[in-house]
Each structure stands twice: as structure tokens, then as C-alpha cells.
């Protein structure tokens, strides 16, 4: 039976890229009155056609997460968030060489032949105050987070509390 293993990974040390994005949005792009904070995650969506998804997820996390500086959460067949921010998913709409390399590494070098596909994305977690949070998130995505000639973005469903499996 096929499953999609969503591995959310974030830095446990300070994320300089997220800080730079926040500073640019606040100091250069006029979002100082609405933007409270910016955080960032990497997302691996790994499709497998067999095997125990929980065991596979542990193995994938060992390969894809550097526990010295990163934390992660695994979600099976769905993608949900904790709340308090607007999650914006940014991914390449042109061929993603890093995702292909990750799939080949898992399949051919590490022997996970049940890996069918790997997709990568960045989740920008935008802490926005006031009304029209989705509109602000859209402006931020189109103004800074993507180049439409290679990236696409998606404002994901409103976060909610949910039992998450943490590795």
C-alpha cells in the first residue's frame, strides 16, 4: 500500500536565512506593522509503495536530518501545522535536481527500493497580525519568496492542533 511520508525539518540553532527574510520584509518592504516573525522549515514528501511507514520514516529521518542542528516531525499522508502562523509552501515548478538526487540516494545508495518519489519544498511560517493574513502572506510570497519563472507557492490550510509524531 502506498504512503506519503512528510518529513518536516527545521534548524534548532538560529536560522539566519529566516532572520534575513524577516529583516528584509520589515526594513525594506514595508511589512513592519503586520509581520511579527518568520520561521522556516524544509519539507521532504517521500512516497513509498510498500513497507512499514513508521519504520521507514525513522530511517529517512536518520539520513535526511542532522540531529546536531536540526529537529523534525513526521506526518503520514497529510500535512498539518501547529497554529499561530500562515504556512507558505514554496517549491520549484521546474525540475528539482535536489529532489531527484535525494530520491536516487534513498533508492540506489541506501537501498530503499520502495521509494517511488521525493518532493522537496520550503515552508515559510509567517507570523502575521491583524486581518487579511492570507492576503499579506500572498504579498510576501510574490514579493520576495518566489521567482515565478522557477518557483510556485501555496498558502496551506489554516494550522490546527494535531497529534504529531516527533523524531
Amino acid at each position: 500500500m502506498s504512503h506519503k511520508i512528510n518529513l518536516r525539518v527545521w534548524l534548532s540553532i538560529p536560522d539566519a536565512e529566516a532572520v534575513t527574510v524577516k529583516n528584509t520584509l520589515v526594513r525594506r518592504m514595508g511589512f513592519q506593522d503586520v509581520l511579527v516573525d518568520v520561521k522556516k522549515e524544509r519539507l521532504f514528501s517521500i512516497e513509498v509503495d510498500s513497507g512499514n511507514p513508521e519504520e521507514l520514516a525513522k530511517s529517512f529521518a536518520k539520513e535526511l536530518v542532522n540531529e546536531n542542528k536540526e529537529d523534525s516531525i513526521v506526518l503520514f499522508d497529510e500535512l498539518i501545522f501547529e497554529g499561530g502562523y500562515v504556512p507558505v509552501k514554496v517549491a520549484l515548478h521546474i525540475e528539482d535536481g535536489e529532489a531527484i538526487s535525494t530520491r536516487e540516494r534513498l533508492r540506489n545508495r541506501l537501498g530503499f527500493k520502495n521509494v517511488v518519489d521525493v518532493k522537496k519544498a520550503t515552508i515559510w511560517k509567517l507570523y502575521i497580525k491583524g486581518q487579511n493574513q492570507e492576503r499579506v502572506a500572498k504579498e510576501i510570497a510574490e514579493g520576495l519568496l518566489i521567482n515565478p519563472h522557477k518557483d510556485s507557492y501555496e498558502i496551506l490550510a489554516k494550522p490546527k492542533d494535531y497529534g504529531l509524531i516527533a523524531y
Binding site: A16, E17, T20, V21, R28, M29, N147, D151
Partner: peptide, 16 residues
């Protein structure tokens, strides 16, 4: 520039 954060050239392009 800016360690290519977000993507190459993106942050520098917003400077005054």
C-alpha cells in the same frame, strides 16, 4: 550577496 538566502540575488535586490 547575502549568502544567496531565499535565492541568489533576491535579498540584495531589495536594498535601497
Amino acid at each position: 550577496a547575502y549568502a544567496d538566502r531565499v535565492r541568489a540575488g533576491a535579498i540584495a535586490s531589495k536594498e535601497p
